[in-house]
Every structure is written in C-alpha cells, then in structure tokens.
C-alpha cells in the first residue's frame, strides 16, 4: 500500500525518511502526494510514529505549501491515489493557494478562577439542576475566554477556528492560520493577552495547516 503524508505542488519528496525508515516518493504533479511504500499500515499509536509522520509533513512544508493528510490515510496502489488526485485536483489546488506562506498555531486557554458563587447550584438542588447550572457556567467561562483571547488573536490570522473542550476545566482550543512573517507578533500578542488576566494560555506550533485543509468553515 501507499501511505500518504501530505499533498504538495511539487512532485519531489523532502530529503527525510518516512515511517519505518521507508524511502519517500512523490506521486502525481500539481498536485502531488508524498508517500512511502509498505506491506501494511506503518503508523502505530506510538508517540515516535506520530512524530515521524509529522517530521515528513514538516520537511515537505519547508519546500512549499502542504495539505497534511489525516492520520492513517493509505491507498491500495498508485492508480487509486492518482484517481483521487485528479478527481479533487481543483479543490487541492485552491487549498494549497489558501495556505501558501502560512503556518498553523494552536492555542489552549483556560480560566484560572474557581467558578463564581453565583454559578453554584443551591444546596438542595437535584442532579439535573446541578448539571444544567454547571453546564451554563462552563459556557459562560468559555465565552469569556473566547472574547478575551480568540478575537484579538483572530485579528492577526488569515483564518481561525475554535471550539470549547468540556474539561473540567473547560478550555478554549483554537487554531490560527498565520503568515510566517506574523508568527513572532502572534506569540507576543499571546503573552500580552495573558498578562493581567486570570487566563492561562499555551501556544503550540508552528504546525502544518491541519485545521485549514477543507473548503468552507468548520
């Protein structure tokens, strides 16, 4: 099978090894896919495999825009892969143009505050009421974090997407498509936003644009 890492413009693989040390090759042209050949699915649920997969995508990203594949994407043979590349060529080309010159930065943010007293259920509240009040408090907390953090950061990004992770504590998990030249400004803005606010922020990346490969908004 052909294990696929990413879609790129150029039919030329990056100068690194693939999973299991396999040689990389490119199939197709504008768009092309970076693949390696295997007898069975080479990706295991182990950190070293995930980082090895990621290393290929990042090496490809050094050469130009990439669309990373979802983990575990494999094709029976070259013909199947070429059919997919041809069938979706327009979509992939538009997506490559969309992410050109940009990287993805990830944010997780959480409020440091304990839930406020008025967010606590009455002492005699049943489980249903307790659940609903807890849920409301989580939604409010997430909205506060989103207003304080997401909107200013989105202003520095080409595109952005966010969701709330239930927790506890609830977290804002957001991704931003940022011009390479703006990465340092973005990180400085993250530090500024954290200062003086009861919010902790972790910024990860730069990543390949995993969250910005699909057409339309999530």
């Amino acid at each position: 099978m052909l294990y696929a890492y990413a879609i790129t413009w150029r039919g030329e693989p990056p100068p690194v090894a693939g999973l299991d040390g396999a040689a990389l090759r490119a199939v197709g042209d504008e768009p092309a896919a970076i693949v390696s050949d295997h007898g069975e699915l080479p990706l295991r649920a182990e950190p070293e495999d995930l980082w090895a997969h990621e290393a290929v995508v990042e090496a490809a990203m050094e050469r130009g825009p990439v669309l990373p594949m979802r983990a575990g994407t494999a094709f029976a043979d070259e013909r199947e892969l070429l059919d997919t590349l041809r069938g979706r060529a327009g979509e992939f080309r538009r997506a490559l143009e969309r992410v050109e010159g940009a990287v993805e930065l990830g944010i997780r943010a959480v409020e440091d505050l304990e839930p406020s007293d008025n967010g606590k259920p009455p002492r005699d509240a049943g489980p249903g009421i307790t659940y609903m009040i807890g849920r409301l408090e989580r939604v409010r907390s997430a909205e506060r974090v989103a207003a304080a953090i997401h909107e200013p950061l989105a202003a520095l990004a080409r595109e952005s997407t966010w969701r709330v992770e239930a927790g506890p504590p609830p977290r804002l998990a957001a991704a931003y498509l940022v011009d390479r030249s703006q990465v340092e400004s973005f990180r400085e803005r993250v530090s500024e936003l954290e200062d003086g606010r009861p919010i902790s922020i972790v910024c990860t990346g730069p990543w390949p644009p995993y969250s910005f490969v699909a057409e339309g908004e999530r």
Binding site: A4, I7, L50, W51, H53, E54, L67, P68, M69, R70, A71, T73, F75, T84, F92, A95, E104, G106, R108, A173, A175, T204, G205, W207, Y210, S211, V213, A214
Partner: peptide
C-alpha cells in the same frame, strides 16, 4: 496532545 488532535480531526480526508 495537540498533534494527536490534528492527526485525528484535521488533515485531508479521502
């Protein structure tokens, strides 16, 4: 954790 999030929920789906 961020990488796994991206590998499972992001990326091109065939």
């Amino acid at each position: 954790v961020d990488l796994v999030d991206r590998l499972l929920d992001g990326g091109v789906v065939i």
